[in-house]
Design a protein around this nucleic acid. Structure first.
Length: 311
DNA sequence: GGGGCGTGTGCTCTTTATAG
DNA sequence: CTATAAAGAGCACACGCCCC
């Protein structure tokens, strides 16, 4: 086995370049000259015997090797930082760091309040939020890059535990000025002739919709396909059509859009927490989970209240 | 083709580690 | 403590790429 003899600075240099996608910006962060940084990364690459970045003068991107090394490097740095913070009385002051991966819907609709509440109790804790598709969330938890994941059920990875916390309806996003927006019991049939917008087939949301609905319950083919729910909502807002979205994605008090619960499309998804199977979550992750459980217990009531107010 | 921006490298000075 | 070697950093500049 080759003797591994690289140092922390090289690791930090590598992570900084990856984060900033370039040497110049990373060098500024590290208070180094670009030349010095270039040499550090170079030395690291020599020690590893592999190129970590493909670089031209315009473009710096991770190689495959670099990509897999990045998550390990982060872990190592985080571990070390945690150890150092530990010396500085982690337990006493609840200092530390938590990384949470979550799907974009949750990131925008719920994370601000969740983090606010969590941080009020543990102000010393630094939080890193990674939002991405369901696959990315699962991967982040699996590799340990995230202490905890928030997403929906349906991931069949034996390495992951899924704790369901909340059942969420899919609703039809329409503009408030849509002629049918005030119907008492809206159904899919009423909207059959509309222009439909959908998220791409690769999206976890889309897979859930396609798998969860029978052929007679499925909305008509979409004329417009977008990558993410946020884009779908923007399209609906612009009057380009209507589409199914998870209820969380649509704030009950949204000024221009409204979510209609279709009586004949009883589609739901289960939101919950992803953790690594067979491993005890870090103390901070456990605190966040506890916070999550109590915060999300209130959401069904809130949704009902919103229904009563708008219905 | 020239200017701007960014990475790579040769050279040199400084700092750090090691042996005596 | 001193002499020496090795490593690290910065300057200046070469080179490549993009945009006008």
């Amino acid at each position: 086995m080759p003797r591994i003899n690289f140092d922390l600075q090289q690791l930090q240099a590598f992570v900084a370049v990856a984060d900033r996608s370039g040497f110049r910006a990373a060098a500024e962060d590290l208070h180094l000259s670009p030349a010095a940084l270039s040499r550090r990364v170079d030395r690291l690459e020599q020690l590893l015997g592999a190129r970590l970045f493909e670089r031209t003068t315009r473009d710096v991107r991770l190689t495959r090797v670099g990509e897999s090394f990045l998550s390990r490097a982060r872990l190592a740095l985080d571990d070390l930082e945690a150890a150092v913070l530990g010396v500085h009385e982690i337990a006493a002051r609840h200092a530390g760091r938590i990384s949470i991966a979550c799907v974009p819907t949750v990131a925008t609709a719920r994370m601000p309040q969740l983090i606010e509440g969590f941080s009020r109790r543990l102000p010393q804790v630094r939080v890193r939020l990674m939002d991405g598709g369901m696959d990315e969330v699962a991967a982040a938890v699996r590799t340990g890059e995230a202490d905890l994941g928030l997403g929906f059920s349906g991931v069949t990875d034996p390495a992951l535990n899924f704790e369901p916390l909340l059942e969420e309806r899919y609703v039809l996003a329409v503009r408030r000025d849509h002629p049918l927006a005030r119907k008492r019991s809206p159904s899919l049939a009423m909207f059959a002739g509309e222009r439909w917008v959908a998220v791409a087939r690769t999206s976890g949301n889309r897979r859930l919709i396609d798998a969860g609905l029978g052929s007679d319950q499925r909305p008509p083919p979409a004329w417009l396909e977008v990558g993410h729910v946020s884009a779908l909502l923007a399209m609906v807002e612009a009057g380009l059509g209507i589409g199914l979205v998870p209820e969380l994605a649509l704030h009950p008090r949204h000024t221009t859009l409204k979510g209609l619960r279709l009586t004949d499309v009883p589609l739901t998804r289960r939101m919950g927490a992803l953790t690594l199977a067979g491993a005890t979550p870090s103390p901070l992750a456990q605190r966040f989970l506890a916070h999550l459980r109590s915060a999300w217990r209130e959401i069904p009531q809130a949704a009902k209240a919103a229904d009563a107010a708008s219905g």
